[in-house]
Simulated scan of single mutants.
Amino acid sequence: MGVAILAEHCVRGITANRARLAETVAAATGLVTALGPALGYETACALALEAHHTGRPALDLVRERELLTEAELRELTSPAALTGRPAL
Rank of each mutant, 00 (worst) to 15 (best):
T43K: 10
P37Q: 03
G30N: 10
L68W: 03
L31A: 14
P37L: 05
E66Y: 00
L59K: 02
T33Y: 04
L6S: 04
I5H: 08
A58N: 03
V62F: 06
G30E: 14
I5P: 03
E75A: 02
A51Y: 02
V25H: 03
A28Y: 10
H9P: 00
T15Q: 08
P86L: 12
N17G: 00
R65L: 11
A38K: 11
G36R: 15
L76R: 05
E70L: 03
E8V: 04
R85A: 08
R63L: 09
A26Y: 08
E50K: 13
R56Y: 02
E8G: 01
L82Q: 13
A87H: 10
S78T: 01
R65V: 06
A58D: 04
L61M: 14
T29H: 12
R12K: 11
V11Y: 07
A87F: 06
A48G: 06
T43S: 12
P86A: 10
L88R: 12
L73I: 13
A27W: 03
E72C: 01
T33R: 13
G13I: 14
V32K: 03
L6H: 05
V25S: 00
T43E: 11
C45P: 00
L76H: 01
L59M: 03
R63T: 05
L35Y: 00
R18N: 12
E23S: 09
H9I: 12
R65Y: 11
G2C: 07
L73Y: 00
L39T: 04
E50S: 13
S78Y: 02
A46S: 12
M1C: 05
A7R: 12
A48H: 04
T15S: 11
R74S: 08
T54A: 10
E50Q: 12
R63Q: 11
G40W: 07
R85L: 13
M1E: 08
G84E: 01
R18H: 07
V32W: 04
T29N: 08
G2A: 15
V62Y: 05
A4Q: 14
A34W: 04
A28D: 15
G84M: 00
I5G: 08
P79A: 01
C10K: 09
A28I: 12
R56E: 14
A26D: 13
A22Y: 01
N17V: 15
T77P: 00
G84Q: 02
A26N: 13
L82G: 09
L68A: 05
V32G: 01
